[in-house]
Design a protein around this nucleic acid. Sequence first.
DNA 1: AACCAGGACGTGA
DNA 2: TCACGTCATGGT
Length: 235
Amino acid sequence: MPKLTGIYAKLLKLYGPQGWWPLLDVEGKNPTKTGSMKGYHPKDYSYPKTDKQRFEICIGTILAQNTSWVQVEKALQNLKKINYVDPKKILKINESNLGKAIKPAGYFNQKAKKLKRFSEFYISLKGKVPSREELLNMWGIGPETADSILLYAYKKPYFVIDAYTKRIFSRLGFFSEKAKYDEMQKFFMDNFPKDYKKYNEFHALIVEHAKRCCNKTNPLSEKCILKKACKFKNI
DNA sequence: AACCAGGACGTGA
DNA sequence: TCACGTCATGGT
């Protein structure tokens, strides 16, 4: 079985720095991705630089639940248009109108409620870093969202496990398809340097690789650089 | 035209 | 605990 550090190096060489977490606007950065968002910032792990950016990332992780990123972009841009990427303003707007603004991201009734609950929590923090337990105790925030917030909004080394990570690394034989979240996370955190910059980059690279060549029903093995170790074809 | 996307929660067994 | 159903828009 290949090592995580080796896979990380391969993916980084192949795809390059991914510039996560994307923001609505990043001053002085050139877009490296298609679409209207110019907010990727490759090789710069200093974001978020402001509280406003931090909050934007937090609500982005909630909006991104089981939804493609392009849809999240639309929802965020709608919020930005009315200048509502702000916890106090999200508390002020009525839930129905909030839902209307974030509609493109899907599950808009649930997500409107989640954004309101989170905004209240965020204000109560007064700049303090939330613990993982505090986040998990919030309605609407599960393990992946909690870890995404800690990693990408607060630069804390919590490895994010998503459906892509599970798919790729179970196919590579690191764990079974029905491994639990905490089990998978522990594996990554025990076998990879505990560095928030590398956690940031690795997760983003995993997403990129999964999108390009690790489909749900079949891997695009001809272009997958990890195909030698992939067990999928033998299942 | 099904299928799925940078999940989480509620329910009944 | 766990296997399912629900939430919902919009790309391919």
